[in-house]
């Protein structure tokens, strides 16, 4: 199977500032890939390069096996690339009705075929009843779904979504996100999704490319990224991390939380990283169980977190079921489940 999109060694500068440094990854046809990175890391520039609004100084962009940009030359104009774009806040055409927004990119817009395609897509995103409405009459979430229908209408090789839910209320975001993913899956579209929200990337995408400091530092499935991050920076960006000093020897490491199993062998002085949910209260402690005093407790409703100060003054965070939260000041025994990570 050919990749729907391939970036090979893409490097881009604005004046003398490097915004993308040797970025390479590919998106398999029919998959959803997320590009996850903090704000200002060059994600939007990346999308503009794929769309054809910017041309990278170095590297190649290949869409469905066709080279569209290479080393400073744009080989295919934006309008001929077959790339659907869902920008931030949707950017619906305010002068057109919902249906005319969706049919904007179709050839022969007044033909029966176009009308059928428009209806089909509006049904796909669950907005068939809104065809004649004006964009400003729709809620933010509905506007995003129309924007997706519009991008899908000309049957693009790939759909690019640029922080599509950043402007929505937290309460609305989860449901709109689920609807959009569902629509993408049912239309069997290929999508590249740019976000700074790790939860969004991990829960929606088949594959995630993590961008830090202008480059892609790791690619993999959400589970891979979370369980075996390639670097300390990735471990810290994808999920929460508890840091401890330790001495590693092969696949074991000794630290303030005792002797832990390592996912990858290491040797010498290391920083040990475990996830807060790996740390539990030990209800049948032994002599060697690590102990500490609870110095802070945060109640979230369904669960909660405690900060525990260990005898050597290191502080660990444990995520617990809400009814297990001990009070501040309590002395507790802890244990670690699963494997830890170690970085030099």
């Amino acid at each position: 199977m050919t990749a729907a999109l391939e970036l090979i060694g893409v490097t881009h500068r604005f004046d003398d500032t490097v915004v993308l440094d040797n970025v390479s990854f590919q998106v398999e046809a029919g998959s959803i890939t997320a590009v996850l990175g903090p704000s200002g890391v060059g994600k939007t520039t990346l999308l503009r390069i794929i769309c054809g609004f910017e041309t990278p100084q170095q590297g190649r962009v290949v869409i469905s096996g066709r080279e569209v940009a290479r080393d400073g030359d744009s080989l295919v104009a934006a309008e001929h690339r077959g790339v659907g774009l869902v920008p931030q806040e949707g950017a619906l055409f305010p002068h057109l009705s919902v249906a005319n927004n969706v049919s904007f990119g179709l050839k022969q817009r007044r033909s029966g075929e176009s009308r059928a395609r428009t209806n089909h897509l509006l049904e796909l995103v669950g907005l068939a009843h809104c065809a004649d409405r004006r964009p400003e009459e729709l809620s933010g979430g509905m506007q995003q779904r129309v924007a997706l229908a519009r991008a899908l209408a000309p049957n693009p090789a790939i759909v690019l979504l640029d922080e599509p839910f950043a402007s929505l209320d937290a309460a609305l975001r989860a449901s709109v996100r689920a609807e959009v993913v569902d629509a993408l899956r049912r239309s069997k579209a290929t999508a590249l999704w740019v976000t700074h929200d790790q939860q969004e990337a991990l829960s929606c995408a088949d594959n995630v490319a993590v961008m830090l400091d202008r480059r892609v530092v790791q690619r993999g499935t959400p589970v891979d990224l979370y369980r075996s991050p390639a670097s300390r920076a990735v471990a810290e960006f994808v999920g929460e991390a508890v840091h401890l000093r330790g001495q590693a020897r092969g696949t074991t490491v000794s630290c303030a939380m005792g002797n832990l199993q390592l996912a990858r062998a290491a040797d010498g002085s290391v920083t040990v990283i475990v996830r807060p949910e790996q740390i539990e209260l030990d209800d049948s402690p032994t002599e060697t169980s690590p102990r500490g005093r609870v110095i802070a407790s945060r109640f979230y409703g369904h669960d909660g977190e405690i900060d525990v100060r260990l005898p050597n003054d290191e502080v660990v965070v444990a995520r617990l079921h809400a009814r297990l939260l001990p009070p501040v000041g309590a002395d507790v025994a802890l244990r670690v489940t699963g494997q830890a990570l170690a970085f030099a």
Partner: peptide, 17 residues
């Protein structure tokens, strides 16, 4: 006053400049 993104979207939908 109109958003630049609207014109980008139009071009990505296959419409010339």
């Amino acid at each position: 006053q109109s958003r630049l993104a609207l014109e980008d979207v139009s071009r990505s939908l296959g419409v010339s400049r």
